[in-house]
Simulated assay, not measured.
Amino acid sequence: MTTRVKDGTKCFRCNKQGCRKEKGFFIDTFFEGSHLSCKEIFQLAYFWSQNLTAQEFLQFQMKRNDGTVISTRTIVDWKQFLRDICVEHLARNPVMLGGPGTIVEIDETVISRRKYNRAWYN
């Protein structure tokens, strides 16, 4: 197979005389169907991996060459997609905490706020 550019996008092309089939680079990958470029997806994944969670900062960093900004909704969708990939990986490859002769202490965490000056029935 060789690579070639067809209609502005790169694809693979079979060189067998009877075949000559073509297949795009992103077919059967999570890049398929995305309106973002490969570079933008990798940038977003990098910023997400660096734990840059401020939406405005992500949008500032994700400006395109023509000056447009990737929408907030698109960034939120891709961040969720990246989290889903991590969840799937950890589900397939569980990590064991502790082991024989090792004590693992688990502490409770409260993830809520107190409602000061409010009745319990509000």
Rank of each mutant, 00 (worst) to 15 (best):
M1W: 06
M1D: 01
T2S: 11
T3I: 02
R4W: 04
R4M: 06
R4D: 00
R4K: 05
V5F: 06
G8R: 02
G8T: 00
T9V: 10
T9S: 08
K10P: 05
K10M: 09
C11N: 08
C11S: 08
F12Q: 00
C14S: 04
N15V: 11
N15M: 04
K16D: 06
Q17R: 12
C19S: 00
R20F: 02
R20W: 00
R20T: 01
G24T: 10
F25C: 05
F26V: 05
F26R: 04
F26M: 09
D28M: 01
T29A: 00
T29L: 00
T29E: 00
F30I: 01
F31L: 02
E32G: 01
E32I: 06
G33M: 00
G33L: 04
S34E: 01
S34I: 07
S34V: 02
L36N: 09
S37Y: 04
C38F: 14
K39R: 07
E40M: 00
I41S: 03
L44R: 00
A45K: 05
Y46A: 06
W48G: 07
Q50N: 05
Q50M: 07
N51P: 11
L52M: 12
T53K: 13
F57T: 12
L58W: 00
Q59A: 04
Q59E: 05
Q61L: 10
Q61N: 13
R64I: 03
R64Q: 10
N65I: 15
N65L: 12
D66C: 03
G67Q: 04
T68H: 11
T68A: 05
V69Y: 06
S71G: 09
S71D: 03
S71Q: 08
T72Q: 15
R73D: 15
T74F: 03
I75C: 02
V76I: 14
V76K: 13
D77S: 13
D77P: 05
W78N: 07
W78P: 03
W78R: 04
K79W: 08
F81Q: 11
F81P: 05
D84W: 08
I85S: 10
I85H: 04
V87H: 10
V87T: 07
H89V: 07
H89Y: 14
L90D: 12
L90Q: 11
A91I: 08
A91D: 07
P94G: 01
P94A: 01
V95M: 11
V95Q: 07
M96A: 12
M96P: 03
M96G: 11
L97E: 10
G99H: 03
G99Y: 10
P100T: 15
P100M: 12
G101W: 06
I103M: 15
I103G: 08
V104E: 06
V104N: 11
E105L: 10
D107R: 15
D107N: 10
T109C: 06
V110R: 05
V110H: 09
S112N: 08
S112W: 06
R113G: 08
R113H: 11
R113E: 09
R114H: 09
R114W: 13
K115M: 13
Y116E: 12
R118G: 01
A119R: 14
A119P: 09
W120I: 13
W120Y: 14
Y121G: 02
Y121L: 15
N122H: 13
